[in-house]
Amino acid sequence: MKEDEKLEEHLNAIRGLGLWHQENEVLPNLIVHRQEREKEKIIHWMVAASLTALFFSGFFIALHFIEEQKIAQQQFEQIAILYSIPNLTY
């Protein structure tokens, strides 16, 4: 009971104080804040798009390289058959 009374005493010290006074207006900062957020979002998407593009470019370059190697190999094979070279290294 004594503890409850003590708590009430402490609570009464900070109860009913009225609204906190705000020094800075929300509205002007809000527009800046919102623009910053939108900029951040755009940058975020641009980075994501660039990374995706980079990934796919790498993927297609690798694919192209493999394809070229296959073609070269086929050409070597054809030459080997054409000129009857038994152990052509390629």
Binding site: E9, H10, L11, N12, A13, I14, L17, G18
Partner: peptide, 13 residues
């Protein structure tokens, strides 16, 4: 708006 005599109590709380 916290009264001077209540400041200690407020800080403790």
């Amino acid at each position: 708006d916290i009264l001077l005599e209540n400041k200690e109590k407020a800080i403790a709380l």
